[in-house]
């Protein structure tokens, strides 16, 4: 029987495909509808937070940080309540990570603040002596790409029915109209910061990457 298969590449390949595809069907499909439901009260990311998430991705914080608190007492003591599936409903992609060279960040917004992040992102060892995390000084001058974040909000609203309000629409005019709201949110964060370049940039209508990133980190709760 098998020897016959080995002489018939077509059926051989079909056989291999069926055997490997089988597990996916049984293990992955059944969960699909259920797991993407949001927990009660979960709000979609604001445009500024999305921009911060994109910086988190661009600079690959996920290389060292997880966002998944496992249900062990040691872990809930360190990071807070264990993670729930419905908390990730608006995470595209999921950012659980697979390596904790640094600590988990799923609830970092509960126990670190804007000014701390400012110090830490500028020079981690200034607050945590012995830290091996790189300093991300370039984030204080690079300007975040807010328009792309807005486009992302429009996309997930239109394609995946993420519940954004009417202010998120796929037109340039809508984007221009929404910009001041994003800037206002950024200004609140910049007010808690000390770096002069950052404050000046925000005042001039540009949002440095670090501001958006901190908005995102503060949102992780």
């Amino acid at each position: 029987m098998f020897h016959w298969l080995e002489k018939n590449p077509f059926f051989f390949s079909v056989g291999v495909f069926v055997v490997i595809a089988f597990a996916g069907l049984i293990e992955i499909l059944p969960n699909f509808a259920e797991a993407s439901r949001p927990v009660v009260g979960l709000k979609p990311y604001s445009v500024l937070e999305l921009a911060g998430k994109n910086i988190y991705m661009k600079d690959q914080c996920i290389a060292c940080h997880s966002q998944l608190i496992r249900p062990f007492k040691a872990e809930t003591d360190r990071y807070g309540q264990y993670s729930l599936s419905g908390e990730y409903a608006y995470d595209r992609p999921f950012l659980w990570g697979s390596k904790r060279t640094g600590p988990d960040l799923h609830r970092i917004g509960n126990y670190r603040t804007t000014d701390w992040h400012e110090n830490h992102m500028w020079e981690p060892t200034s607050v945590v002596p012995g830290s091996i995390m790189p300093a991300y000084k370039h984030m204080f001058t690079n300007i975040a790409d807010i328009e792309t974040a807005y486009a992302e909000a429009v996309t997930v609203k239109n394609v995946f029915a993420t519940p954004y309000g009417d202010e998120i629409k796929g037109t340039r005019a809508a984007w221009e109209a929404h910009k001041p709201a994003v800037l206002a949110e950024a200004a609140k964060i910049a007010a808690d910061m000390k770096n002069k370049d950052v404050k000046d940039a925000v005042a001039a209508g540009n949002i440095p990457e670090v501001v958006a990133l901190i908005a995102y980190l503060n949102r992780l709760k």
């Binding site: 990730y88 608006y90 999921f94 997930v156």
Partner: peptide
């Protein structure tokens, strides 16, 4: 953006 979100992703 990914077609899937959160746990599904």
């Amino acid at each position: 953006v990914s077609m899937y979100s959160g746990t599904n992703d």
